[in-house]
Write a protein that binds this DNA or RNA. Structure first.
Lengths: 229, 229
DNA sequence: ACAATAGTGTCTCTAAGACAATATACG
DNA sequence: CGTATATTGTCTTAGAGACACTATTGT
């Protein structure tokens, strides 16, 4: 191979995005995996991902949204950059960089053919370094749930405080004091009651429904000292 | 241009690393900028950065260490991935992805020719999107300083608690209760006194010198609820 | 009215801040 | 000894958890 080929291979790299789309089903954090149609690893379950297309994507986040739309059939849920993963061995096609994103959705629509929701704690071996990426994403989400409003993106609006409480508990895997929880949600100031709307769940007092304030739809609200779960 | 060129340009992208090397000088957080020798932006001050070399780098962190060594003449200080920045416009050479890193050093050796330490709060316009990258890095460092041992990497070992205290205060820009600070450092459990070593600074009681425990040389220690500065 | 869950009031306990007391060096 | 900073002891105060009480619905 000649020098120019070499320097080209050296400077222009395989560049992909991978999306860790998480949701809460059966009180478990689950991740969307897609059956790969092409090599490498055709037939295996893997994260939705794909090449970054310089000609169509404005940036990597844009590529992630495109992948999410094309492979998961989703509009734009909460999306946050996780980290980049790189190296010569992670993709058999060669030295590559993958910019990984975490996305959260509330309503896990019935999976289309080829889509699978699997609990993050019971994953099989995944191709590429997707196992590591998922683990990284789960760490981030669990950690951030301790002191931010992140989990609201796992909850379909409008929702009640007891529902949100349950989501925090499922994520953190431990009980959270209900009084403190209400105090925290209150001081985070990100929720507003839906006037008059209550949710009756049985022969007892119905719960007030809340929605996210518009200001917090793209921004998280951070608590001073966590939920101390 | 033909299809294969097109798809090549589309799938193989310009991939660089940029390093935000920070230190504390004159009680100010400062960043290392390098006078660029080549186009684009030759002559301008910019972050040390460069292409990722598939043939020599094991991953992007490796590329960042190489850049740091070549352009800043530094061994491997504390290094942490910050985020990736991408898009068609950030680099005039074309659609690019840059994986940015934050690095921290204690002793700001006298800058070599072409190297400049500038306070992060008084930066000129920087080329590429380096202004944004620095701002992002500074946010991260200041934020993480609130609840972790990160700032010890800005302190030459061994150091005294009053010195470290001063570093935290300089970073966070507000006074920290000295008693709470000691309690926190104690419970973080990352420091060990250097037996018998004290630092006399004048006609008064000298301070105990400490060093970082080996276990925490690469890992940070996290506090339960921050320093509540 | 009863059962069951939603939401509140308030006491307790933990941990952060304030402040004062003690320790130790150099002169 | 006197001074200046290091270090510790302990009181005060803010916020998290526990627990009991009130509120509101369907039956």
């Amino acid at each position: 191979m000649n020098t120019s080929t070499n320097s080209n291979a050296d400077h222009r790299l395989i560049c992909t995005v991978d999306v860790v789309l998480l949701t809460l089903r059966d009180a478990q954090l689950q991740v969307l995996l897609i059956k790969r149609e092409r090599e490498p690893f055709a037939g295996a379950l893997a994260l939705p991902g794909g090449y970054v297309h310089a000609s169509v994507d404005q940036d990597c986040a844009d590529a992630a949204r495109r992948v999410l739309h094309d492979k998961a059939g989703l509009p734009s849920p909460y999306l946050e950059q996780l980290a980049s993963f790189s190296g010569p061995a992670r993709d058999p096609r060669g030295w590559s960089v993958s910019v990984a994103y975490v996305a959260l959705v509330a309503a896990p629509q019935a999976p289309q053919p080829g889509q699978h929701w699997l609990p993050v704690d019971e994953l099989p071996q995944l191709p590429f370094d997707h196992g590591r990426i998922v683990a990284n994403a789960v760490d981030r989400v669990r950690n951030k749930s301790q002191y931010s409003s992140l989990p609201v993106h796992l909850c379909a609006e409008p929702f009640t405080l007891p529902q949100l409480h349950g989501i925090y508990e499922a994520l953190l895997g431990e009980p959270i004091n209900a009084v403190s929880f209400r105090r925290k949600m209150d001081e985070l100031g990100m929720l507003e009651p839906v006037p008059g709307a209550k949710l009756a769940q049985g022969p007892h007092r119905p719960a007030q429904l809340y929605r996210l304030r518009d200001e917090y739809r793209r921004t998280l609200s951070l608590a001073g000292r966590g939920l101390n779960a």
